[in-house]
């Protein structure tokens, strides 16, 4: 495992820890999109099906379990925890996220590495992950008051796939791995969707101002 991959995974883990910290310590999910969190549950559930069939490493198995358990528990907190759920911005979080699922699935049926159940679901999870942040970005744009934990959560979540892009370049060059257009292009799209957010995040960080996205 190269340094970019490890940094990417750690950033991903960090983003989830930041979100859980917000939920546990502030007992709040204000500014967090349940739609995006539900999409992540679907992403992880379809991608990590192989947890029962294929063993890669202890690291790989533990990380998969962590991502599955944390994504399910975040959705549970937002839907069912009696304090946390009252802080959910239901009226602002109106992105019709189901409309992302069907096109991603159809695309995975059409464009995949191999036409098997596992490979199609794996591909679907990559396509869906690329766009899963959209409801969250829309909600942020509508939020007049983005707290630091929410801003940092989205920043780390975006940085993770960006670091994976370097991991793929490294693997292609150093390990002479195959061309892997499906994850590469999905990852590129995923990172590009954050471009606007990154711009305003870094700008507000430099000026030591509160993060606010233009409507």
């Amino acid at each position: 495992m190269n340094v970019f991959r490890l940094a990417g995974d750690m950033t991903h883990l960090l983003s989830i820890m930041v979100l859980l910290l917000k939920i546990h310590s502030m007992k709040s999910c204000a500014g967090i999109s349940l739609k995006t969190q539900e999409l992540y549950v679907l992403v992880f559930a379809t991608r990590y099906l192989d947890i029962f069939t294929t063993y890669f490493s202890f690291y790989n198995t533990v990380m998969k379990i962590v991502f599955l358990v944390t994504s399910f528990s975040i959705v549970w907190y937002m839907r069912h925890h009696k304090v946390v759920r009252q802080t959910y911005d239901r009226d602002q979080d109106t992105f019709r996220h189901h409309l992302l699922v069907i096109p991603c699935f159809l695309l995975a049926l059409l464009i995949n590495h191999r036409f098997t159940v596992r490979e199609v679901l794996w591909t679907f999870s990559l396509y869906l992950e690329a766009v899963a942040i959209l409801p969250q970005l829309v909600l942020l744009q509508r939020s007049r008051n983005i707290d630091n934990l929410t801003g940092n959560y989205v920043f780390f979540l975006g940085a993770y796939r960006g670091l994976y892009l370097f991991n793929w370049i490294y693997r292609y060059m150093a390990e002479k791995s195959q061309l892997r257009w499906i994850p590469w292009i999905s990852g590129l799209v995923q990172t590009a969707l954050y471009a606007d957010f990154f711009y305003y995040y870094i700008k507000s960080w430099k000026k030591r101002e509160k993060l606010q996205l233009p409507a």
């Binding site: 192989d50 794996w122 195959q178 892997r180 994850p183």
Partner: peptide
């Protein structure tokens, strides 16, 4: 099962 390319990633 057979190990597919890239499935070692998260």
């Amino acid at each position: 099962g057979e190990v597919m390319v890239g499935h070692d990633e998260l």
